[in-house]
Amino acid sequence: MQAGLVALSGVCVALALAPTVLAEPLERATTVVSGIADGAPITTDGVYLQLSGIQAGLSPLLLATGLAVMMIAALAVVRRSRVRRTTRGIPAWGCGRTVQTARMEYTATSFAEPLQRVFDDVLHPEIDVDVDHHTESRHYVQAIRYRLHTRDAFEHRLYLPLLAVARRWGDGARRIQNGSIHRYLAYSLFTLIIVLLVSR
């Protein structure tokens, strides 16, 4: 299933490392539209990229190799100094609560909750929290369900009204073709009169 994801990320990485592969065809495309093309925006000598407008250089290839070299160096340092074997499988720190269940993990909603709270007057999220208390006493909580739903602004403010207008227009337009032959004949008669007046 991840094949798609891997493929796409692979393409992104490849493009990041060698953007000039696309530069030349893109440039040919832009020259077709007059007025936009101003020579080659990206020039390269294989390693360094030179932006024609501003005097700035970049070399994604070297950056990537530099990163890799540094990582390998750090790994070497760490591995050389390791005294004992790595032990795996020890329980993660649960602040005293040893049983770590999957339900305690952060979900997408909880991960995005702080950011959503920061941008809440833009997103207008609909939040509903329902708490099940224990039957015996109200102080102890049995389960909390936190649901957060943000409506897509564009769909809600632009597309839906647009569709409503189109549907109303379509229903209104039904009257043009309501089946009565006299209405159709009226169209023909008025058009005939208008054409006669126009071509007088």
């Binding site: 549907r167 227009w169 379509g170 209104g172 337009a173 039904r174 043009i176």
Partner: peptide
């Protein structure tokens, strides 16, 4: 225009 109006909710 007539065709478009009448096709929308056909």
């Amino acid at each position: 225009v007539a065709a478009a109006s009448l096709m929308v909710t056909q």
